[in-house]
Write a protein that binds this DNA or RNA. Structure first.
Lengths: 186, 186
DNA sequence: ACAGCCATGTAAGTTGTTACATGATTCG
DNA sequence: CGAATCATGTAACAACTTACATGGCTGT
């Protein structure tokens, strides 16, 4: 599921301009690309040259002219093929865990504040994800696709929640350990 | 926490050659880089030129000569600074969720088999993570670092577990929905 | 004999990033 | 008046990848 396929996928929902797609990708947490021009406009051109999409130039009064891209039948076929390939497992980059692996140089207190800060950051991420999930829940269609979108939002919320739970439990355990060591020393 | 810092971090544990570091990174799921030569040897050279590491050439009987890298005091300082910066939140790329967002073109049956396959893949990932966690648990030191490593392993296991739980629940719900639709149609 | 490990390194490529350029319009 | 939005596109670079080259040693 690279950017090419993702753009094809987005175009199944409705025709869109490069600018539209760029915004969707940039504002989403699901579509993890930065949503920069260079990539998107280039990929769209490539898709067009391969016959997977076509575009129609739309002039607008008092707004710049835009190219509205639409999926072709061939594009739909290629997308379907891609979707039917066995799904990939999630790829996670937890820099905090790498930090922990390198944390020998830190004192217990420093490590604890690190955990506290991590908890705050993860909590913020969870709150954001919750907000998006609620917004998705308000749409209230009962098509399969709106249900899938809801489940997707739930997945993300639960991922953040699991991380927060781990961070809390581990911080508490660390706190106990640290206190014990202190009383020992006194 | 980029590759530079990670290499510094790995060198706190013990001096190592580029080849050693490459293997650690390539075999680990935590250190998410591919562990290719080009990057690692280049970064090590860069770190050496900045005075963060030094190397000692070690000739070996019946094995190629190697450069064993060691952290300098300055390297330790730079690493500490990096570790004390506020930790980053995890970055997750769930291509499966992107697929779901593009899945309008699929039938209910196709979607179901997609979920089934995803479950299998995630289960495999969980099994692998569990194996690594058990191996880590067997080490049985009671230093802070071995405890941290254990907690790290647990984090990874729980992340996989959360994903598997979600996949199962969602697949079951989807199955019910699909069956209902079928009975409706009959 | 042939594969695979140890150990270094380079070449060539893909992917993704930030930042810039243009130019009209709209909002505070 | 300046900033932001709409809309396209390019330039320069950073990060990361696969694949290759070398060469002796080890195990089947």
């Amino acid at each position: 599921m690279d950017l090419r396929e993702t753009l094809l996928g987005l175009l199944t929902q409705k025709p869109a301009s490069g600018y539209d797609l760029k915004r969707v990708i940039a504002e989403s947490d699901l579509f993890y690309w930065s949503g920069n021009n260079n990539q998107i406009y280039k990929v769209l051109l490539e898709l067009q040259q391969e016959g997977l999409v076509t575009f129609e130039v739309q002039t607008q009064a008092s707004l710049p002219t835009k190219k509205v891209y639409t999926l072709t039948d061939q594009g739909r076929r290629v997308l379907r093929e891609g979707l039917l390939r066995p799904p990939e497992v999630p790829e996670t980059r937890k820099n905090f865990l790498i930090q922990l692996a390198c944390a020998q140089a830190l004192t217990d207190e420093e490590l604890l504040t690190l955990f506290e800060r991590y908890e705050v950051e993860v909590q913020a991420g969870l709150n954001l994800a919750r907000g998006l999930a609620e917004r998705a829940a308000k749409h209230e269609g009962d098509s399969r696709q709106t249900w899938l979108d809801l489940m997707t939002r739930e997945n993300i919320v639960q991922t953040w929640q699991a991380e927060l739970d781990w961070a809390r439990r581990t911080r508490e355990e660390l706190q106990e350990k640290t206190n014990k060591d202190k009383t020992k020393r006194n």
